[in-house]
Each structure stands twice: as C-alpha cells, then as structure tokens.
C-alpha cells in the first residue's frame, strides 16, 4: 500500500511537471518536485520499500524524459543510496537538513547525467547549463520545506488511516467498540 501511495503521488507530480509546470516562464524555472519526492522517500522510508518506489519512479521518468532507457532508475537509486548512507551518519529527519541534502543530491544527479551522456555518446555531450542548474538548486532550496511538509502531511494522513483501520469520518462496523 505504501508503494502504491507513493507511486500515485509520483505519477501525479510527473504529470504536473510535464504539462502544467512547463507553462512557467523560463526565468521562473520549472521545479523538479519529483526529485524532492525521491529525496523525501530516501530520508523517511525504509530501504526495501523506498528502493522499490524509487526504482519504479525512475522507470516512469524514463518514459517521459531522456533518450537512454534505464538512466533515471540508476541515477535515482544512486541518490537513494547516497542519502541512506548520509542518514546513517547524520540524523536527517528534520526538513532543515533534508533541503541541503536535496540540493547537493540534485547537483550529483546533474553530474551523473553529464557523465552518463559522455560515456553513451561523447559527440552528443550536452552543454552544462549552469544558469538552469543554479536556478533549479535555488528553487529546490526555496520550495523544499513546504513540499516536504506536504509529503509529510500526506503520509501522516495515510498512517492515520492504516492505524485506525478505517477512513476518517466513517463509522466502524463493530458498534460495540
């Protein structure tokens, strides 16, 4: 169920990113909210389920972005492992720590994309878009805390439902409880 929740959330964000957010003007940038979801999953959830969701979201991202299939699952899993590695050394449950981690991870993703493209086709190496990368890092830093808070609220709601075993506002079937 946990995987399904994150998958639905991921699909929703992906659809937003490929459609609605594309209408944002260039100077405003297009926030990579899906990447924040990956970071959130890596920070908050356990290894097995988290890795499964990250892998699925990476596969989905492959469908809508990029040229080389398999690039996103690999990059996202590397980010997941990196964050889990950092989490073993530092307590990163607070959003304040997760935001810089997201920013650093995004920079790694960029480098990963660049290196991967270099190996896949040296003559097709993209130019490093400094302006766009810096803008994206700034956007992630600004929207990080509110977006993480929204994810947290969604997960709290989900846990509340699963803990009570029923949807809020509905009556239990056992009237003697």
């Amino acid at each position: 169920m946990f995987i399904v929740i994150f998958l639905i959330l991921g699909i929703f964000i992906l659809v937003l990113q490929t459609t609605f957010l594309q209408f944002f003007p260039v100077w405003l940038g297009k926030p990579d909210v899906l990447f924040l979801l990956i970071v959130y999953i890596a920070c908050q959830e356990n290894i097995l389920q988290g890795a499964m969701v990250v892998l699925l979201l990476g596969l989905l991202m492959d469908v809508f972005s990029g040229v080389f299939l398999g690039l996103y699952p690999v990059i996202y899993l590397l980010v997941f492992v990196f964050i889990k590695g950092v989490a073993r050394q530092v307590a990163i449950n607070e959003f304040a720590y997760q935001v810089p981690l997201a920013v650093i991870s995004y920079l790694f993703v960029g480098i990963g994309m660049f290196v991967f493209s270099f190996f896949m086709g040296p003559d097709a190496l993209p130019q490093w878009p400094w302006e766009k990368v810096l803008l994206q890092l700034l956007i992630l830093a600004v929207i990080g805390i509110p977006v993480f808070a929204i994810f947290d609220a969604i997960m709290s709601f989900y846990r509340k439902i699963t803990a009570s075993g029923r949807l809020p506002g509905t009556r239990s079937s056992n009237i003697f409880k």
Binding site: T18, Q22, F64, S65, G66, G110, M113
Partner: peptide
C-alpha cells in the same frame, strides 16, 4: 503535444 521533457538535460516531447 501532450507533455514536455521536465529535465534540464534532454529535449523530448510526448
């Protein structure tokens, strides 16, 4: 066009 590549590294359309 129903979607655009959200990444900074690739340029594709759906």
């Amino acid at each position: 066009i129903i979607g655009k590549d959200p990444s900074l590294w690739f340029r594709t359309l759906t």
